[in-house]
């Protein structure tokens, strides 16, 4: 029983780690909490659904299409909404991002309704290790999450562009003065994160279900993970995802699973109060 909870928690963590990393990166260069991520994830899930079920393509192809499609949506939302309103303060951008997530979610509803769906996949028996059950998809989710964390780490730490992303997040004015085209760096960050959000939509569809609210359900744990890790710190986000993933599963022991989303909020509230800079984050002066 308890080992099964650990495994479920790991899968949960693997699901929220990539978008939490992406959220951290976006926060780093944009400096506001972007609630549009829920919309992006939903869009990603339905892109994949359209390619996989409506067009009958294999799931891996659907996943690639979803990543590209979501990156395009993310790019458009930046060009049409966030970029024209840069410098308007975090609250305005926060309001905009919530409006955007509602719009994206309801565009999906317009086409697909509110029904719960699933990918067209052959049913597979879960693997059993003693008492522990784990499905093929869940193993894939964990492997992908580890791969994405590693790739992101390598990019940020060892490539010129990755270092420029960190430099831009650290001090955008200085980055420009040193000749870094921060507009381009921000665009690249958006696109990379867009692909991660798209992929998250696909993985959520594999592990949970596909519905317009799938992104919203994940938004809170993702924020909890990113804030827990110290928002703006991608490495902290990985750790945060692990803790939130496990915490959510552990509360199932005490509370009905329908309260999962509330657990994320409680973690956020407590953590922000006790350690506003997050576990690994640098202290930030409260404005």
């Amino acid at each position: 029983m308890s080992w099964q909870i650990l495994v479920n928690g790991l899968v949960n963590a693997a699901l929220i780690a990539p978008p939490a990393i992406a959220l951290s990166l976006i926060f780093g260069v944009m400096r506001f909490p972007n609630f549009a991520i829920g919309g992006y994830i939903t869009v990603g899930a339905f892109f994949a659904y359209a390619v996989n079920v409506d067009l009958g393509a294999p799931i891996w192809l659907a996943a690639i299409a979803a990543m590209i499609g979501t990156a395009v949506v993310v790019w458009l939302s930046d060009a049409l909404v966030f970029r024209p309103m840069q410098g308007r303060g975090p609250v305005t951008l926060l309001v905009l991002s919530i409006a955007l997530t509602l719009i994206l979610e309801h565009i999906v509803r317009l086409f697909y309704g509110a029904d719960v769906r699933g990918f067209d996949l052959p049913l597979q028996r879960p693997y059993r290790f003693g008492d522990i059950r784990i499905t093929q998809e869940q193993i894939e989710i964990i492997v992908l999450a580890i791969a994405i964390a590693a790739i992101t780490h390598l990019i940020l730490q060892y490539t010129r562009t990755g270092k420029a992303v960190r430099a831009t997040a650290d001090n955008p004015m200085l980055a420009q003065v040193r000749g870094i085209d921060t507009g381009w760096i921000i665009l690249l960050t958006w696109l990379y994160c867009g692909m991660l959000f798209g992929l998250t939509g696909v993985l959520a569809g594999l592990d949970l279900v596909i519905e317009p609210l799938v992104g919203w359900y994940l938004t809170i744990p993702i924020f909890a993970a990113a804030i827990l890790g110290g928002i703006g710190s991608p490495y902290g986000a990985m750790l945060g995802a692990l803790l939130v993933g496990l915490a959510e599963e552990l509360t199932v022991l005490i509370l009905p699973s329908t309260y999962k989303i509330g657990v994320g909020f409680v973690i956020i509230a407590i953590l922000l109060l006790v350690r506003p800079q997050g576990l690994l984050g640098r202290p930030e002066i409260k404005k």
Binding site: R160, K163, A164, R166, A167, A169, D170, N171, M173, L174, A175, R178, I180, R282
Partner: peptide, 15 residues
């Protein structure tokens, strides 16, 4: 704020 505080000295010079 004339250095990238989160980057190492070597990375700063690289930037």
């Amino acid at each position: 704020a004339n250095v990238f505080r989160q980057l190492t000295v070597a990375e700063n010079l690289e930037m």
